[in-house]
Amino acid sequence: MDCPDCGNDRTRVIDTGTSTDGMSVRRRRECQRCSFRFTTYERPEWNSLQVKKRDGRIESFSREKLRAGVERAVEKRQVTEKAVTDVVDTIESELQDHETCIVPSRLIGELASEKLRDLDQVAYIRFVSVYKAFSEPEEFLRELDAVLDAELDDFGRSTPQNLSDNL
């Protein structure tokens, strides 16, 4: 930290404490050349979204990682590049609207799952199988049943005949 009086870059911290707002650290400093004393404040800088991973680590949000996950899920499906971009834009926008700059990775996975479910059900199953780390075939079946049940509800679920009439 440069001295504001003489410009010397050798200063020492005399006292450290929390500011009155609790959001920054207040430091009293003294120049080692001219003995001028001054106060500095350190505040966290949030230039971008931060993601709290399952293991507790915090890393910067990566639009590229999100896009890569969505693209893997929609691979070889009839989903346009624009649709993928729209999904990623929507998720990023919803994350930016949160009151905090640190979002749990779980929230990103839930938002991506929700958007993919509306976009393409096969892509949705692919995505959640990785996101939820399916390890047993029964987990696939439960998720697939949930998707199929929702689809049947959309058709009025009275009889199989009604379903075939709507197709």
Score class of each variant (00 low, 15 high):
residue 97 D to C: 00
residue 105 S to P: 02
residue 53 K to M: 14
residue 13 V to E: 13
residue 78 Q to I: 08
residue 15 D to T: 08
residue 74 V to N: 01
residue 140 F to H: 04
residue 151 E to F: 09
residue 126 R to D: 05
residue 4 P to H: 03
residue 83 A to Y: 00
residue 40 T to Q: 10
residue 36 F to M: 07
residue 72 R to N: 11
residue 8 N to P: 00
residue 72 R to S: 10
residue 73 A to L: 04
residue 45 E to S: 09
residue 59 E to M: 07
residue 153 D to W: 00
residue 46 W to F: 15
residue 132 K to H: 10
residue 1 M to R: 07
residue 33 R to H: 11
residue 25 V to K: 01
residue 82 K to H: 01
residue 126 R to L: 04
residue 166 N to K: 14
residue 130 V to N: 03
residue 157 R to D: 09
residue 48 S to R: 08
residue 98 H to K: 13
residue 71 E to W: 00
residue 30 E to A: 11
residue 119 L to D: 06
residue 14 I to E: 14
residue 146 A to C: 08
residue 17 G to W: 06
residue 52 K to R: 12
residue 62 S to F: 01
residue 31 C to D: 10
residue 158 S to R: 04
residue 25 V to H: 00
residue 20 T to V: 15
residue 38 F to W: 09
residue 160 P to H: 11
residue 42 E to P: 06
residue 140 F to Y: 15
residue 56 G to A: 07
residue 46 W to Y: 14
residue 2 D to S: 11
residue 15 D to C: 09
residue 108 I to L: 12
residue 96 Q to R: 10
residue 29 R to F: 07
residue 44 P to L: 07
residue 3 C to M: 08
residue 31 C to V: 06
residue 114 E to D: 15
residue 100 T to R: 12
residue 14 I to P: 08
residue 63 R to T: 10
residue 143 E to R: 02
residue 164 S to H: 08
residue 106 R to L: 11
residue 115 K to E: 15
residue 11 T to I: 08
residue 65 K to T: 11
residue 97 D to I: 00
residue 53 K to R: 06
residue 55 D to H: 08
residue 24 S to D: 07
residue 135 S to Q: 13
residue 73 A to I: 05
residue 62 S to H: 05
residue 71 E to P: 00
residue 57 R to N: 15
residue 72 R to Y: 00
residue 26 R to G: 07
residue 10 R to Y: 02
residue 6 C to E: 12
residue 157 R to C: 11
residue 128 V to H: 07
residue 105 S to I: 10
residue 154 D to N: 12
residue 161 Q to F: 09
residue 104 P to A: 14
residue 117 R to K: 15
residue 136 E to D: 15
residue 65 K to I: 06
residue 110 E to Y: 01
residue 105 S to K: 02
residue 85 T to H: 03
residue 134 F to K: 05
residue 153 D to T: 12
residue 93 S to L: 06
residue 99 E to W: 03
residue 60 S to G: 10
